[in-house]
Every structure is written in C-alpha cells, then in structure tokens.
Design a protein around this nucleic acid. Structure first.
Lengths: 178, 178
DNA sequence: TGTATTTATATCGGTTTGATATATATTCGT
DNA sequence: ACGAATATATATCAAACCGATATAAATACA
C-alpha cells in the first residue's frame, strides 16, 4: 500500500482537497502513516489520470485554484482490492532509539535529557489524543485512538522503569574515564 | 540522522563489510531502523570519499572483492556530533493499522484473519527476540531488547482485549447489508 | 494596523526502498 | 554423492517518498 492508495482511502470518507487530505494524514493518521505534500499532490494527479478520482476545479477570482477530488466507482473498487491484500510489514525508524543504541558514547546528562524529552513528548501526544479520543464516533475510531494511547503509555512506563540501565552505565563510563 | 550516519555508528563497534552492516541492521536494528543494500553500498562509497571510513580491498582469486570498512578518527568525531543532536521524530508506517482504519469496508472474516496473523507475527518476533535477549552482554543491549519485547507484548494485549470493537462492527455491518 | 496562522497548490533535490543481477561457498536433506 | 537451498558478497536502478521551499490570499488576533 502506497500513499496513492491511502489518498484513495481518505476520499472514500468524503470529497476533499489535497490540503484537506494532508490534514487528515496529520490529524487521524499521524500514528499510522506519514505523508508529505511532495507525495500527496503528485499522487492525486496520477489518480486523476488513471480515472480513480475525479477533480472539480474552482478557479475563483484572485485565489489559487481549489481542486476538490472525489473518488470514482473504479477508485472504490481498486481501493477495496488494495485493502484485501495482506499488509506489508511495518516500516519504523526511530532516531531516538538509534541514539540510545550508542548511549555509551554520550555523557550521562545528555542521556537523561534525551529520555526526559521523549517522555514529555509522549505525554504531550497522549494529552492531545485523549481529548480527541473522547469524541470519536465509531468503535473503529475508538479502537485506533486507544491503540495509540496504549502504546505511548507502554513506552513511558518502560522508559521510567528501565532508564537506570542506561544512566547507571553512563555514570560508570564517565567515572572510568577519569 | 540518515543511513550514512548509522553505518558510521555500526563501524564504531568494529570493522565490517557492507554485507555485515546489512546483517547488523537486520539482527540488531530491525525494530529501530531499516536499511537496504540500495542505501548501504552508496553510503559506504560516499563515506569513503569523505574520509570518514577507510576501505581495505581483498580481491581474492575467483571471489568477488571483499571490502572491509573501518571508521577513521574523523568519522568517529562526525558520528559523535550526529548523536549529540536532538533526534528527529519517529517515522512510522503501518499498513496493518491503515487497513484497520477501513475495516468497515472488509468482511468480518478478513478482519479476524488480519488480527490473528498480526498476533502470530508478534508472538513469533517475541519468541526469537527472547532467545537473543537472554545472552545480551551489556545493560544497553538488554534495555533495547526488552523495549522491543515490551512493545510487542503491549500490542498483543491491546489487540486481544479490543478486537471485538472491530469485529462486532463488521458483523453488524454484514447483517445490515443482508 | 501589523503579524501570525490557516487555506491552498506546486515543485525539486536528495534519500530510501525493493527488486534484480551476478557469482561462489557452504550446508543440508535424501 | 548429488542436487537444492541458503549464506556470503557487491552493485545498480526505477520508483517512491521526504523535507524544504515558493507563492499568495484570507482570516484571526493582538
């Protein structure tokens, strides 16, 4: 599944502009799938060429053209096909964890700050998500929202319970270097 | 932090060939950072050009050249610089979760299979990781290994406790369609 | 009134993926 | 002993994707 396919998926929920699709990625798919303008706009052009979406253009007075995309019957069919396939493996990249992998090269204070910042970031995400999570309509939205909350909380718990493993190591290291 | 930087990091742990670096990504960084040959070999060439690694070439009889890379003093310095910077946000992509976001379009049986497969996959990963986790030397290795185990287990628990939210919805949907 | 954010589209260089090609050595089942 | 599969080893390419940047007006806010 590529970004083209997911744009199609978002359009099954209603017509949207490229800008609105980007917002949907940020608001509802942040946890799941990231996409930038650099992939969304070309994706919409290609989907239009292929007849999987249609595009109504509103070229008003002085504003830039507003293009509202709608999924076509063929588009719906193709999207269904795509989600019926076995999903590919997750693709995950964490610079945070990659950095911790080399924590023995870092001063203890830097490690502590790194983990503090991470916990703060996760708490922040939980705070904003918890709000939104409350007023989700469907069970499906609840499921995904709470999935995120659960994972973030599990991460915080793990970091708090085990950070000493990295921090003690770093203190030992700095003492040895004296 | 890009793959070039992480190759440098891996070489701080000892000399290696491109092939061995790829294996390290698979064995020890699977959870954290993915990299393919298509990015590793060009990365090593560029690092060599820049003098951050050095390369000894063993062109033996009939075998293809074996190139053993070593990090240089300059390389170590640059790597330290890189890990001292604030890590960028995680980049995560899950086709599994993206598919579940549209589970209302899928038959209940497909949803069930999707979740069953996911749980099996996570259990499998835990099984192989638990073995390796046991004979990790440093606290740091323990920390990262158990991080993975904890996250995978948290996911399994969540799926088992909440899958009914998606599955009940799907059964209702199919009944409504009759 | 001035500034920041939101709405809106678009492109571009650089990074990364996933597949493919090539060739030999080793391991393993039968 | 033989054939198959896996491991060792490098390399390239098209396509996908990211992050930054450019442009421009409307709206919110201070």
């Amino acid at each position: 599944m590529d970004i083209r396919t997911l744009c199609l998926g978002i359009l099954t929920m209603g017509d949207a502009t490229g800008y609105e699709i980007k917002k949907t990625f940020e608001d509802r798919l942040d946890l799941i799938f990231h996409a930038s303008y650099g992939s969304i706009y070309p994706a919409l052009n290609k989907l239009t060429e292929e007849g999987l979406v249609s595009c109504r253009e509103f070229s008003q007075e002085k504003r830039p053209d507003k293009k509202i995309y709608s999924i076509t019957a063929n588009g719906r069919y193709q999207f269904f096909d795509a989600i019926m396939k076995k999903p590919a493996a997750d693709r995950f990249r964490s610079e945070f964890l990659a950095t911790l992998m080399f924590s023995h090269l870092l001063p203890a204070s830097v490690i502590a700050e790194l983990i503090d910042d991470r916990i703060k970031d996760r708490l922040q995400k939980i705070a904003t998500m918890a709000d939104e999570c409350g007023n989700k309509q469907t069970d499906r939205d609840q499921f995904l929202c709470n999935f995120g909350l659960t994972m973030y909380q599990a991460e915080i718990d793990y970091l708090q319970d085990n950070r000493h493993l990295l921090e003690a190591d770093a203190l030992l290291g700095s003492r040895a270097a004296e």
